[in-house]
Amino acid sequence: MDVKLIHIPKVHDVRGSLAVIEGDCIPFKIARVYYLFDVPSDAYRGGHAHKEQQSLILALSGSFEVVVNNGSKNERYLLNKPNIGLYIPTGVWREIENFSSGAVCLVLASTNYDENEYIRDYDTFLSSKQS
């Protein structure tokens, strides 16, 4: 599926920790950054795939689960550390759920926003995987 956890380099001392994303730390150039917060615990986000975009999802605070599907297999990842991100390549369906109180989900994206680049219908997504 090529979905994988990426460990972000961090430095820790008595003052706390610092994580840095630069250079080839992630497998794409960042074009857009956005974040989700104040998501109710019973809500979910995502529910789409991308035709071109690659993403890295990080739990900056709290925790949540990311369910990914490549058209034939589901995998579930718990994100709860701000220096471990989930890399999602192009063409993978994702849903984000089970947000803890105070969770902040940061997404680094390889493309600028373009609604035409999204696949929002699950059946259309599955059909795209058959070709």
Rank of each mutant, 00 (worst) to 15 (best):
I6M: 10
I8L: 00
P9A: 09
P9V: 10
V11R: 06
D13K: 01
D13R: 01
G23I: 13
D24Y: 07
D24V: 05
I26F: 05
P27Q: 09
K29I: 11
K29S: 14
R32N: 12
Y34V: 09
F37L: 04
D38W: 03
Y44R: 13
Y44S: 15
G46N: 07
G47K: 03
H48G: 02
H50N: 13
K51G: 03
Q53R: 12
Q54R: 12
Q54G: 02
S55T: 10
L58W: 03
S61P: 01
F64T: 11
V67P: 00
V67Q: 05
V67K: 06
V68K: 01
N69Y: 07
N69S: 07
E75V: 02
Y77E: 04
L78C: 09
P82I: 01
I84A: 03
G85M: 02
P89S: 08
G91E: 03
G91F: 03
V92N: 00
W93N: 09
R94A: 15
I96F: 06
I96E: 04
E97C: 12
F99Y: 15
S101A: 08
S101W: 01
G102Q: 11
C105Y: 00
V107Q: 03
L108D: 02
T111G: 04
T111A: 08
T111V: 09
Y113V: 06
N116G: 06
E117G: 10
E117I: 06
E117L: 10
I119N: 09
R120E: 11
D121I: 11
D121L: 06
Y122W: 08
T124V: 14
